[in-house]
């Protein structure tokens, strides 16, 4: 089974993430970035499936030059090859345009399964998988916590808010996996060395046959009109428990009418 895993290069959540004040887009250049941690679960799932059933894992990313880091880390974990869609026209693309570019790239790659993370850790929309499926004319199952592949049939468990569902689908299929689905591996020394020899292709929009006028900030279907930093919380009162911590806590709650 050949699997395409979509991975995103995102600003580090533990750094001071912000926006580019000139156009209200996410600052992807001034803030240190990395492979979205939630996409590691997608890579791990793909590796597990191909290790037992054969096939290759191709990682696909769309993003600025630095996004090559996300491809590299995926290859170090064990993915077989990488594709990086890189084009200046892409800057500022929204989910619709991202899904267009990724879908056109996927069409050029061998794919029985397409696996994504449950959400990117920056935009966090969780809509790319459904959009990809719509564009490719195939089914999708998102937020999978367990995946069992049996020939062309895929069985998925998903834990929703009100119920746990079992879903059955056939390949080709788009899946997104949660952080409950597995434990992503760390790249081994061997993996890091091997990654250096793995093929990575860089594609521009021309190679995908996507018109630059269909992507980027100016043709986005949504726009951020303003952003404001949340005012820092004012420092609260901190007491050290000297045998009366619980009592003091209740006094605070009572003075604020919670009890």
């Amino acid at each position: 089974m050949n699997i395409v895993v979509c991975v995103k290069y995102v600003p580090d959540a533990t750094a001071d993430r912000t926006f580019d004040s000139t156009d209200n887009t996410v600052d992807r250049v001034g803030v240190d970035g990395l492979l979205s941690e939630l996409d590691e679960y997608a890579i791990e799932e793909a590796l597990t499936i191909t290790e037992s059933g054969g096939g290759e894992v191709t990682v696909l990313t769309m993003g600025p030059a630095q996004a090559a880091d996300a491809v590299r880390k995926s290859l170090q974990m064990g993915a077989h090859k990488g594709v990086h869609v890189l084009d200046d026209a892409i800057h500022g693309s929204d989910a619709a345009a991202t899904s267009l570019v990724l879908a056109e790239a996927i069409k050029k790659l061998d794919h029985d399964l397409i696996i994504t993370g449950m959400a990117s850790t920056d935009g966090g929309m969780s809509v790319i998988p459904a959009m990809l499926a719509e564009r490719l004319g195939i089914a999708q199952v998102t937020f999978a916590s367990e995946i069992v592949v049996d020939g062309e049939t895929v069985r998925i468990r998903r834990d929703g808010d009100v119920a746990t569902e079992t879903i059955e689908a056939s390949t080709p299929l788009v899946l997104s996996v949660t952080d409950q689905s597995n434990e992503p591996r760390y790249p081994s020394f061997k993996g890091i060395m091997a990654a250096k020899k793995k093929p990575v292709e860089t594609w521009s929009l021309t190679e995908l046959g996507v018109d630059p006028a269909q992507v980027g900030l100016d043709s986005a279907w949504t726009k951020v009109t303003a952003y404001v930093a949340r005012p820092p919380r004012t420092a609260g009162e901190i007491v050290t428990d000297e045998g009366d911590g619980g009592t003091k806590l209740v006094e605070f709650l009572a003075s604020n009418k919670f009890v």
Partner: peptide, 21 residues
């Protein structure tokens, strides 16, 4: 982040608070 914080062991602070409430 807090408006009010207790530096202490939750195993003793919480039962005391529960009892007081």
């Amino acid at each position: 982040l807090v408006d009010f914080g207790v530096v202490g062991n939750l195993k003793t602070v919480l039962p005391q608070a529960t009892e007081a409430i």
